[in-house]
């Protein structure tokens, strides 16, 4: 994977040469303009407050802080407009040229509800959507989402809490799976008697320790989760420190990967093409695409 990434990284540097120049030029222009505006405002305020010289150091520090915030947001904005999706697209297209990233919220709450990962939520905030076709010709959508629920605090003020944050993806299968199958991370609350309905006992103790499997047909559930498939999921969890959760319903394979931070965000204080950062994006994208393809292949191989 590392060798493969090195080639992609070199290609990325080559392809984005001109865009980086445009980005740098735009950033320079915006920052100069912002500095000029802040300087003019500061001078005007200082002139008005001529008699309050004691306030000068405070006002200057305030202006500097304000300028830093403006510069960071300008840089982030320019990066997101010019470079972000170009970088992500090159990384995704290294897997399959049909893959395309954009910022459209293509996964709506109805689709997420269908996956039955969370039933009781109020809204979904989404960004960075990847659409494409897997190598097994199944169409595929991947998006970073936050599933949120409205809560009232003691003072009656409403705010949203995250029920889930991470990557959610859907693979459209060319077959219909007649049962509902769900694999979620083990939780003590899942062991309550009313939640144990349709819970399957699996023959891998290491898998059982981490996951709960639910299916309304025991045989079908066991057919999907062979020893090999369970091991694949455990290996993924070990390697990438992510717990994939799976739901299979009709012709849709839903997978979600809880990640407790913004996943594909550039740290503005790092280089534009920081090797480690781009590598982390690449690992995230390729690992999720690969496990989705792998698992969908396992389902497609089944003689349903």
């Amino acid at each position: 994977m590392e060798n493969n990434f090195n080639t992609i990284y070199e290609e990325l540097k080559e392809k984005l040469k001109d865009d980086i120049l445009v980005y740098k030029k735009n950033v320079r222009k915006s920052i100069s303009l912002a500095t000029l505006i802040v300087a003019i405002i500061l001078i005007a305020i200082l002139l008005v407050l001529r008699n309050f010289t004691a306030l000068y150091p405070f006002l200057i520090i305030l202006a500097i802080i304000f300028l830093v915030i403006v510069c960071v947001s300008l840089k982030t904005n320019e990066y997101n407009n010019i470079l972000k999706y170009k970088i992500l697209n090159i990384l995704a297209q290294s897997y399959n040229p049909t893959c395309k990233f954009d910022n459209s919220p293509s996964i709506d709450s109805k689709i997420y509800k269908d996956s039955t990962f969370n039933i009781d939520f109020d809204r979904i905030v989404s960004e960075d959507c990847l659409n494409g076709v897997l190598n097994n010709e199944c169409s595929f959508t991947f998006q970073e989402i936050s599933v949120q629920k409205k809560v009232k605090n003691n003072k009656g003020k409403i705010h949203f809490i995250n029920l889930f944050h991470g990557i959610f993806c859907i693979v459209e299968l060319p077959i219909i799976f007649s049962y509902d199958l769900k694999v979620i991370k083990n939780d003590i609350s899942n062991n309550l008697w009313f939640k144990r309905k349709n819970k399957l006992e699996m023959d891998s103790t290491s898998f059982e320790k981490v996951y709960d499997v639910y299916c309304n047909n025991k045989i079908a559930g066991m057919q999907v989760f062979t020893a090999d498939t369970m091991q694949k999921i455990l290996d993924f969890k070990e390697k990438y420190k992510m717990y994939p959760e799976i739901s299979l319903k009709k012709n849709n394979l839903y997978m979600r990967f809880p990640i407790f931070k913004n996943c594909l965000e550039h740290n503005i204080f790092k280089n534009i093409l920081d090797y480690k950062e781009i590598e982390s994006f690449y690992i995230l994208i390729s690992s999720i695409i690969n496990i989705s393809e792998n698992f969908s292949n396992d389902v497609l191989d089944l003689p349903f």
């Binding site: 006992e201 699996m202 023959d203 025991k218 045989i219 057919q223 089944l302 003689p303």
Partner: peptide
């Protein structure tokens, strides 16, 4: 026969559990 063999294997695993 392959489909049934697959179901059979799943049924055997359930039996063993």
């Amino acid at each position: 026969l392959q489909k049934m063999e697959n179901q059979l294997q799943a049924a055997r695993r359930i039996y063993n559990i």
